[in-house]
């Protein structure tokens, strides 16, 4: 298992180098000038000479190959450069926002898992009964309702019924758990519902598939209790596709909560990504794309390890 993990980690390096090179050049094909937007968007009367001076200050006047070399050398020292918009370190810009997105992603995942596994199982076990129909309606609604819209409904609901909104601003859960949870539970619910819907449907179909397998029939023929058949034989195997979906959704949530973060005023990675793209802040976009790449690679590795734990045949192969 250790060898497997080490092999996976070594594979990360060429992947990240590829991402870094691709993103560096592709971003520069994008039209738009960050300096002009920064200096003129609010109507300031700035001369062309000043714009050139600012471009020089930011190093944008250097040939592309020099900028690329500087960037790659920086990466070897874990230096992602400075934001062209704020002049602050990209690492710092990301570090501030990452805990918010990570916590919402974890909370949404917990909500999804706690809803999806029992509901998906019930739906499969009581197939074509009112329980199954209810769960399916709930799941289809979750897929149909966009998270940000549900978020807006939650905000309006809190205002209409309780004349209250959570305090704005992120407080660490270790510092003030009540303030933290009272602010982040709502975005987690709005995202978690859709996430749960995807996982519930996956759980149901996977379980139905597994329950048709010969080994389940054999277990039943041997007189094993239904509950035991489910717990020991069916559920564990049915979890494989669910784990994949949960992993992919989790990876997507880091950086993917673009609109939801804006609806709930969260200072997260998604909002930062949108702002950076709208402004053409190349260095920040590069850092964020790398973060998302690392995140997907890590989550995929964890999913692979979970596969191996859930199904020993995978481990052996």
């Amino acid at each position: 298992m250790l060898g497997y993990i080490i092999r996976r980690l070594f594979l990360v390096i060429p992947t990240l180098v590829g991402v870094a090179v691709a993103v560096f050049f592709l971003i520069r094909v994008m039209p738009g000038d960050v300096v002009v937007v920064k200096l003129r968007a609010d109507g300031a009367q700035v001369t062309e000479e000043t714009i050139q001076a600012e471009r020089k200050r930011l190093g944008l006047d250097k040939p592309l190959i020099v900028q690329f070399t500087d960037y790659m050398i920086g990466l070897t020292r874990f230096d992602l450069g400075k934001s062209l918009w704020t002049g602050q370190s990209v690492f710092e810009e990301i570090r501030i926002r990452f805990p918010v997105s990570l916590q919402v992603a974890i909370m949404a995942t917990l909500i999804a898992v706690f809803i999806a596994i029992p509901l998906g199982t019930l739906s499969a076990v009581y197939r074509d009964t009112w329980i199954d129909y209810s769960v399916r309606v709930l799941a289809v609604s979750g897929l149909a309702i966009p998270s940000f819209w549900l978020g807006m409904l939650i905000i309006l609901g809190l205002l209409a019924f309780f004349n209250w909104l959570p305090k704005i601003g992120y407080v660490s859960i270790f510092e003030d758990p009540v303030a933290n949870l009272s602010a982040l539970i709502w975005p987690a619910l709005s995202v978690g519902y859709r996430y749960a819907a995807v996982a519930t449907r996956m759980m149901r179909s996977a379980l139905l598939e597994v329950m048709r397998e010969d080994y389940i029939r054999t277990a039943r023929a041997k007189g094993v209790y239904q509950k035991l058949v489910m717990r020991r034989h069916a559920l564990r195997n049915a979890m494989l596709p669910v784990v994949t979906v949960v992993g992919l959704e989790f990876a997507f949530l880091i950086g993917g909560l673009v609109v939801t973060e804006q609806v709930f005023n969260l200072n997260g990675i998604g909002k930062l990504f949108v702002d950076a793209t709208a402004r053409g802040d190349f260095t920040l976009i590069q850092g964020l794309v790398l973060l998302i790449a690392v995140n997907f690679i890590l989550v995929n590795s964890v999913v692979d390890l979970l596969y191996a734990w859930l199904d020993p045949r995978i481990r052996l192969s």
Binding site: T86, G87, K167, I168, V171, P177, V178, A179, S182
Partner: peptide
């Protein structure tokens, strides 16, 4: 919701004003 409204939260003193700005400063 009531508990969240009463407990915890941001410890902004009452004679502090809380403002909204529609963008971050550039510099």
């Amino acid at each position: 919701v009531q508990l969240a409204a009463c407990g915890g939260g941001d410890a902004t003193p009452s004679d502090w004003i809380v403002l909204a700005l529609t963008s971050s400063p550039t510099n």
